[in-house]
Write a protein that binds this DNA or RNA. Structure first.
Lengths: 240, 240
DNA sequence: ACAAAATTGTGTAATTTTTACACAACTTAA
DNA sequence: TTAAGTTGTGTAAAAATTACACAATTTTGT
């Protein structure tokens, strides 16, 4: 039995931290939109010469005393002019050589928005919506980040009601189904899809019809976030 | 229609990055174990005087050219002597005031291990297993980190086969059920639980029985990781 | 040797959920 | 007026989930 020696406590945490190596920290937003029945991601041309012509995520450094979430929101506001956007941290990427300018660690955020609602700042800049399928090489490790977030999204929309953020406030069941089919990359049975959402009882019939469609218009619905939050279920079941 | 001006490309990324604020970066491991039918987490006493007597996660700075995952693995090896431990990044915590020594951003990892397999370095140090329920205040924001990882784990074990990492190589169905009950905090029907795992057909009957139990011994099983990886299913279904 | 305690192992019937599938009604465009 | 395209709806079969009870096995204590 060893007499455990009294540990020496550190009095000056600042001094301790000053011995740590430091890194530059950024956030990168994978901004998804849905247009022409395709999942799109908003990209900008890289402003680095080494990546000339390549596409890059929208990101920025994290400021000195800034929360990570706040930094991501700031990027979104700057680029889309939108303030109340669905936003969630997904993963931190820290490969030591992911940035040609030195050690830059980035926290990736996934954000979902309705492409109609931000037609603002997109004309200037070299900002463009890209369909996921057509993405080739990107600047930094951004292709990897996009892939990671896309997989995250595929999983996530099956279990959480985020997909609605990609649609207008009021949407038809067809639009909703198109969204799921596009993101998951599969076909869904129309009747079963509708039955499923009907049984969840989380869509509010707003008593309006689609406008300007070249065929019989469908009913429009809103998602009932309030009810969802009230009844959020916690247990699902073991299955893998 | 504006004549979009040619953007100026940055030739020297290093110079650019040098203008970014920097932060100290650490990893923190939430190391879960399972003992006496309880989920436990491995903690150490904080070595900071401001947190005197409080418990802290096992963490360390990320070294200059180190991968994040590698840093977390290094912490695990140092503290448990184990090399091949289940480890996964969970979330990045960056509250500007989370560390009294300045801006320190941490990447939280969740790790699962069998408490039998590492009886090594735990005697010295002020390292102890704590039952989750009994956790009070902790150093830094570590209570928040533990809570986040515990919720992550609850979700995760329902959909992925990680729970087995908390058990011995060979385990009985009773042990497995106890594990799920403890982590999820619910009671499960024994017959249905067994039927569920039987139908998955991912447990290998190793033709051995439990030893030294004060009652009829149960059969022992191994998890068939190979088969699981082969047949991994991707689509589950919309439900929230 | 025996009885008590504790736990294993197993099946069925009722209910719920999922799946596959077809047709009449509506709206627009030509 | 007709063709094209889509909406809205129900049912039967299959699969998954739930609730539930009893005999067999092993250890411990007497």
């Amino acid at each position: 039995m060893s007499t455990s020696q009294q540990p020496v406590l550190i009095k000056n945490p600042t001094k301790l931290v000053s011995t740590y190596p430091t890194v530059a920290l950024t956030v990168d937003c994978v901004i998804f939109g849905f247009e022409a029945n395709q999942l799109k991601v908003l990209l900008i041309r890289s402003d680095l010469e080494v990546y000339k012509g390549m596409w890059s995520l929208l990101g920025d450094m994290v400021k000195r005393d800034e929360e990570l979430d706040a930094a991501a929101q700031r990027v979104l506001l700057q680029r889309t002019g939108m303030n109340d956007v669905y936003l969630e941290q997904v993963h931190c990427f820290g490969n030591p050589s992911r940035h040609p300018g030195g050690r830059v660690v980035t926290v990736a955020y996934c954000s979902l928005l309705n492409v109609q609602h931000h037609q603002l700042k997109i004309l200037d800049n070299e900002l463009h919506w890209h369909s996921l399928a057509s993405l080739q090489e990107m600047a930094f490790d951004h292709k990897e980040v996009v892939d990671y977030c896309y997989n995250w999204l595929k999983k996530r929309i099956q279990e959480h009601p985020l997909g609605f953020n990609l649609l207008p406030d009021k949407f038809s069941l067809r639009e909703l189904q198109n969204l799921y089919e596009a993101i998951l990359g599969i076909q869904l049975d129309r009747r079963n899809f509708r039955k499923k959402f009907a049984s969840m009882d989380l869509l509010i019939d707003v008593n309006e019809m689609e406008q300007d469609v070249p065929h019989r218009p469908g009913k429009l619905y809103k998602f009932n976030y309030e009810k969802y939050e009230r009844n959020k279920r916690t247990w699902i079941g073991i299955d893998f």
